[in-house]
């Protein structure tokens, strides 16, 4: 496989978001797999920076919606306004009509607004007053949310979490990275970033990622993981077939980013925490184990004895 320009993208983003190469790579993986991304972390960890940089690197048309409790679906989707001149209703598209939408602090909005966004994500279109308006392609939503136990939030229900292909947590950078962040000239970075490739190249990349070979053994591995989540008593919410598909496509995108034209178990293992974690729920309501649920799942299955 020839050198793919997306590895440049990883490097470029890493210059902005210092010290989090894995998260950056996962975020890119999510976009290549044509899925929506949920970033979950405390305020100020670089969620917005990441999504903004992603949009710039890939040359996507970008808009940002700040979710608040009084945000109405129409504020986001757009509105039909009566045009006096033409004597008819004209549709004014909302901010959701762009290729990359940053839905900031998605869990602050009311469930109604949340579900309106999630509907748009799922269907790739917006229906308003009996008229459907197609969303641009590609269409990504990067949702960010604060951890659920913060007050004044409406946590996303499980069915809606399922629509995000991946959920990543950024976490604190290590000391060195933080130091270099301090020494770097903030503000300069944004100007540096230029799209690494034209948009149609990115779409081609998405296409070739889906063509990556998954052998029987590997599919068995994925199935074994999924079935374990269904059989074992440790998981209250097992992985759905949608999650299985998500896992495969994410793993393929990961392999693509690693310049391989076939899948190996490492690909699955790399993406599993971000794909599965938000879909699983522990059977015991003990929150301390929550963080490592996907790890439990991973460790239950031997990838080579299949």
């Amino acid at each position: 496989m020839n050198e793919n320009p997306l590895s440049n993208a990883t490097n470029t983003i890493s210059q902005v978001l210092i010290g989090k190469p894995k998260q950056v790579k996962l975020a890119l993986t999510c976009l290549i797999a044509d899925g929506h991304l949920l970033i979950e972390d405390l305020p100020g960890m670089g969620k917005t920076t990441l999504s903004h940089t992603l949009a710039m690197v890939l040359g996507l048309q970008y808009s940002r919606i700040q979710f608040t409790s009084d945000l109405l679906p129409a504020d986001m989707l757009g509105i039909n306004i009566f045009d006096n001149k033409e004597q008819e209703f004209r549709f004014h598209p909302g901010p959701v009509f762009s290729q990359l939408v940053l839905a900031d602090e998605i869990n602050r909005a009311s469930p109604k607004t949340q579900s309106a966004l999630l509907e748009a994500m799922e269907e790739g279109q917006v229906s308003l007053d009996g008229k459907t308006h197609l969303l641009p392609k590609p269409f990504f939503v990067i949702g960010t949310q604060n951890p659920q136990h913060q007050s004044g939030t409406y946590p996303l229900p499980e069915s809606q979490l399922d629509r995000f292909l991946m959920r990543i947590q950024l976490g604190y950078p290590n000391k060195e990275a933080e130091k270099s962040m301090l020494t770097a000239q903030i503000g300069d970075n944004k100007t540096i970033i230029k799209p690494v490739m034209p948009l149609n190249h990115f779409i081609q990349a998405q296409e070739s990622a889906t063509k990556i070979h998954a052998s029987d053994e590997l599919l068995n591995y994925i199935l074994a993981l999924v079935t374990h989540s269904r059989e074992s008593n440790q998981f209250a919410n097992p992985l759905s077939p949608r999650a299985t598909k998500a896992l495969l496509s994410a793993a393929k995108a990961w392999a693509y980013l690693n310049n391989r034209d076939y899948l190996i178990p490492e690909d699955v293992q790399a993406v599993l925490p971000s794909v599965a974690e938000h879909r699983l729920r522990s059977a015991s309501s003990d929150f301390s184990t929550q963080g490592s649920l996907s790890q439990i799942l991973l460790e239950a299955i031997d990838p080579i004895a299949l």
Binding site: I264, E299, D302
Partner: peptide, 25 residues
Amino acid sequence: QRLYFKALDVFESAGTIRPNWQAPL
């Protein structure tokens, strides 16, 4: 599979045991 597992056995006897969920690479 058998050949690969033989190789793994060699390491096991040498004291390096693969965690049973670790992938080959």
